[in-house]
Design a protein around this nucleic acid. Sequence first.
DNA 1: TACTTACATTGACAATCATCGATATGAGGA
DNA 2: TCCTCATATCGATGATTGTCAATGTAAGTA
Lengths: 100, 100
Amino acid sequence: MNSMDIALICKALSDSNRLQIVQMLSAGERCACKLLEAFEITQPTLSHHMKILCECGLVRDRQVGKWRYYSLCGETLRGFKEFIENLSYDDQKESGANCK
Amino acid sequence: MNSMDIALICKALSDSNRLQIVQMLSAGERCACKLLEAFEITQPTLSHHMKILCECGLVRDRQVGKWRYYSLCGETLRGFKEFIENLSYDDQKESGANCK
DNA sequence: TACTTACATTGACAATCATCGATATGAGGA
DNA sequence: TCCTCATATCGATGATTGTCAATGTAAGTA
């Protein structure tokens, strides 16, 4: 998982509606109509957001009859978490790459 | 740290240049001129990106004479990591909130 | 004081984005 | 077959974004 993939995931999470959708999915699978109830957006807008979440790999969907169910993708989520976890802050680090 | 703050941080990380800047800062403090060397962007563009990274709280800066040094903010980074870490995927979760 | 250096701000522009209403698709059900 | 329901796609629009050249600012230097 390279930094382009990560940037894509971050872009998907940069919209506050989409971030809340992901939080809902973190509690378990949801169908589109239940997601739609939870937000004050129209159905085309939800569909657009779900497409973006799926395209970055963070969300998977499955269809059952007329309904579409969304859930987080464990593999992508793991890769993303690993990247974020590896960002570090350490007061003691050398500032070797500075001026003067 | 609410989900608006997190969305702002994700937006800051959604640009691939900014994501790489954060990775560089994860290795330690850097001054603006060293960051500028590492990317193929102009100085105003770097300045713009650093402003966005600072405004979401992820990056701190300090000025020494003419030079400006950037580093990750440990506190914000911790809050962000915690949020991401709490996103979970569990195959066994109830799909209680679904249709039919 | 005048000059240089490091960085920020401004203004412009093309590209991307979130959103919506309208419409299409496709799966049941009558 | 015709209708309804759940969702996707299309086309348009106003807002935001990344980028740059030009310019401003503020610190050090001669």
